[in-house]
Nucleic acid binder design. Sequence first.
DNA 1: TTTTTATATCTACAAATGTAGATTATAGAG
DNA 2: CTCTATAATCTACATTTGTAGATATAAAAA
Lengths: 130, 130
Amino acid sequence: MNKKLSDFELDVMSIFWRVNKASAPQVHELITENKEVSYSTVKTIVDRLEQKSAIKRESLQGRTIFYAPAIKQESLSTPLLKGFLRRLFSNRPQQLIAQLIENEELNNDDIEKLEKMLAEKKSTQRKSKK
Amino acid sequence: MNKKLSDFELDVMSIFWRVNKASAPQVHELITENKEVSYSTVKTIVDRLEQKSAIKRESLQGRTIFYAPAIKQESLSTPLLKGFLRRLFSNRPQQLIAQLIENEELNNDDIEKLEKMLAEKKSTQRKSKK
DNA sequence: TTTTTATATCTACAAATGTAGATTATAGAG
DNA sequence: CTCTATAATCTACATTTGTAGATATAAAAA
């Protein structure tokens, strides 16, 4: 992958990550559930994502092109999370996590998984004298 | 505050949030610890932040202008976190938190605070049958 | 086979962004 | 009081981004 992706491009990527394979008309359909944009606009973004090698042509049906992600979500989210944490949370992961716990939905399974991870981290750190 | 802030603008805001009050030369000094940009460039960003009412003139020393944040970090981070979560974590806070726990540093105090918050959330949800 | 319609392709453009040189002005040094 | 260095102001520009109309074209419908 070459370059940074814009917000709109990431919106479209998030659709590809969700449905895995989609044509531009389908992406348009999904996008317009949230905001009204013309087909042309969406297709331009899809083209740019292909240019940037974030998606690739996967198959054809008639002359309709189906695309699929060419990069994994984590390969973008991991570096971007660093920047986000720095710019908006002064590099304090604790603050960011706290805000998520307060404002976002977590079911009990999620919570228990996270509790396990925290406990694990604590003991690891004790061992390594962190 | 009027408009969205760009990445570079957020970089500069993060400095203001950290030091609270700074002149353009000082911001330049701090920014160049990480990347080389000319004073002009930094001053342009500072001007744009003032235009966008994200910072305001706070005092003068000679003809040096000191600026201070005009918006709180949370007032930006809260809405931006929503978008970030949606675009890069498919709206799954659990994933985002997990990644932070795995990759970022948390001291034991942080961890214990978070554990408390999680426990609290779990019991609240039990009560409200979530 | 002709018509219609759905897609793709092409072109365009204003606004935002990252970047910085040139110019002006003034506070502080001497 | 004059000079100088530093900071502000002004101007500029290539690139990216969001946005979409116009046009071509092929598949599907009639």
